[in-house]
């Protein structure tokens, strides 16, 4: 009888989450006629697809790594840098907003700022005499996209890592100090190793976060950029690959990658929670 209470949730998640995904995964290993095959997955190796995946991975990795690093520095500064308490609370609130301010509007904001006629581009040209675009900068490039992605990656990092920083107990620092350790030794041997699992876990989360992101890139580059989700998006809309089964394989590949990164996240979270029990 108890199981009846779970029926609505089970039906819903089966119908709108599990079965659609399962259908895709299954499709990745089937021919159009329904026979089992590995050809679709093998076809991912063709340059056009492989490059899209590679760019996606590079983009997600770069934005996750830099977001992680800068977010870590900012969070440490705010949590331990001796800044007033209200600054810390406002930083967290703003991070909550900024981490959700992704997608199309975010790319508009950056176009208005760093596009060819954006205010910052103009100010830098008029006031400092530096022509950003003349120097090879392009908002619609790989690193431009990284710059835009950082706008939601850094705040997400701050939101997740701040509790971990708060978990660093004052006594650990004092114990290390009284045992003769310098501040640097304390960070290298105690604080950073403790923060390492949650940081790595968050980085995996940031990676998955930008790997699936599509709206920002579409709005910035008009769906011309060859990254995995956009290739899949175009394939679904118009079968541009002339091979409907290849779409399944791309989707499957994306699930595998985000699945692995999320696994890393979960493992790392369990590890850090075990310590800080």
């Amino acid at each position: 009888m108890n199981w009846l209470g779970l029926v609505p949730f089970a039906i819903f998640s089966l119908l709108f989450l599990l079965l659609p995904t399962f259908n895709i995964v299954l499709g990745a290993f089937r021919t159009q006629q329904g026979a089992a095959t590995l050809d679709n997955v093998m076809n991912l190796a063709q340059p056009r697809i492989a490059i899209a995946f590679w760019v996606s991975i590079k983009l997600s990795f770069a934005s996750a790594l830099i977001g992680c690093l800068l977010g870590f520095i900012l969070a440490t500064t705010v949590a331990l840098g001796g800044l007033p308490r209200w600054l810390r609370q406002s930083t967290l609130t703003f991070s909550g907003v900024a981490s959700n301010f992704a997608g199309v509007p975010l790319s508009f904001a950056f176009i208005a700022t760093l596009g060819r006629v954006g205010i910052l581009t103009i100010v830098i040209r008029e006031v400092f005499g530096i022509n950003l675009y003349g120097l090879g900068f392009n908002l619609l490039s790989f690193w431009g996209l990284v710059l835009v992605y950082l706008y939601f990656q850094i705040p997400l990092m701050i939101l997740i890592i701040t509790p971990a920083l708060d978990g660093l107990r004052r006594e650990w620092r004092e114990a290390a100090e009284i045992l003769g350790a310098t501040g640097f030794q304390y960070w290298r041997r105690v604080a950073l190793p403790i923060l390492w699992p949650p940081t790595l876990g968050t980085m995996a989360l940031l990676f998955a976060n930008s790997f699936g992101a599509i709206a920002t890139a579409v709005a910035l580059t008009g769906s011309q950029l060859s990254i995995a989700p956009i290739v899949l998006f175009n394939q679904i809309r118009g079968d541009v690959l002339q091979d409907p089964q290849l779409g399944y394989a791309i989707a499957f590949g994306m699930i595998v990658i985000t699945g692995i990164t999320n696994l890393i996240y979960i493992v790392m979270r369990v590890r850090s929670e075990r310590w800080l029990k």
């Binding site: 650990w172 290390a176 403790i194």
Partner: peptide, 8 residues
């Protein structure tokens, strides 16, 4: 609070 380093 003991203050042992949890990672060591």
């Amino acid at each position: 609070s003991y203050a042992l380093f949890p990672n060591l």
